[in-house]
């Protein structure tokens, strides 16, 4: 069986592409990162639902849908939690971060959603994550980091990138510590330093 480097394809904007990119880089995966300008008809036909991101593993296995990609990579690295309940909390966190934090944050940044949404998300989601981390060392409540912690870090990092840093000031010490932990990872530090600027702030 021929093996190639895994590859990942998404646009320059962070939004949904950043979650798999952070995950791949966290594990130091050697992969080809394709920054796509647009999806032509030919390429679209190869995408299950006509959408990016797309991950192609070294054995040719193809996968779309952000969370499915991240979970697949995390499963390879035993990063989804040790028990069925821990894994359920990982899933709960993934769904909340993706649907209720990243997407609305992106929409506000793009100017298609009311800015007031940000305050609701900070009080509802980031406060919840802070409280969970204050009670347990890890988001999924086990004895080690999981994909849930990485997702919460990405959301926190993204909201700062979107220009909401002042709303976080001195309020979230555990989220700050989580950010420091992940940003000290070699792969993540390199990715943050080298990723292209979309020029759109999102």
């Amino acid at each position: 069986m021929t093996t190639n480097k895994p590859s990942f394809s998404y646009f320059k904007v962070l939004v949904l592409g950043q979650l798999p990119r952070f995950t791949l880089n966290y594990f130091g995966t050697d992969f080809t990162d394709n920054y796509v300008e647009s999806i032509d008809d030919e390429f679209r036909k190869t995408l299950k639902f006509g959408q990016l991101p797309l991950f192609v593993d070294s054995d040719g296995f193809r996968l779309t849908q952000t969370d499915a990609i991240c979970k697949y990579i995390a499963a390879k690295h035993d990063f989804l939690g040790k028990s069925i309940k821990e894994r359920a909390i990982v899933d709960e966190t993934i769904a909340a971060v993706h649907d209720d934090v990243i997407i609305p944050g992106y929409k506000v940044g793009k100017g298609v959603e009311d800015k007031k949404v940000i305050d609701t998300i900070i009080s509802r989601h980031f406060t919840t994550f802070e409280n969970v981390l204050a009670e347990n060392k890890f988001i999924a409540g086990g004895d080690n980091y999981t994909l849930a912690d990485l997702y919460v870090f990405v959301a926190y990092h993204y909201y700062k990138h979107l220009g909401h840093s002042e709303k976080f000031q001195n309020k979230f010490p555990h989220l700050e510590a989580l950010q420091a932990h992940f940003e000290s990872n070699k792969g993540i530090a390199e990715y943050i330093k080298n990723r292209p600027d979309s020029g759109r702030g999102i």
Binding site: D67, I84, K85, R87, A88, I89, D91, E92, I94, A95, A96
Partner: peptide
């Protein structure tokens, strides 16, 4: 034990 988020509930029951 409590969980919210539809996909998480589905995955938990399925597992």
């Amino acid at each position: 034990f409590k969980i919210v988020q539809t996909p998480a509930i589905i995955d938990y029951i399925s597992e």
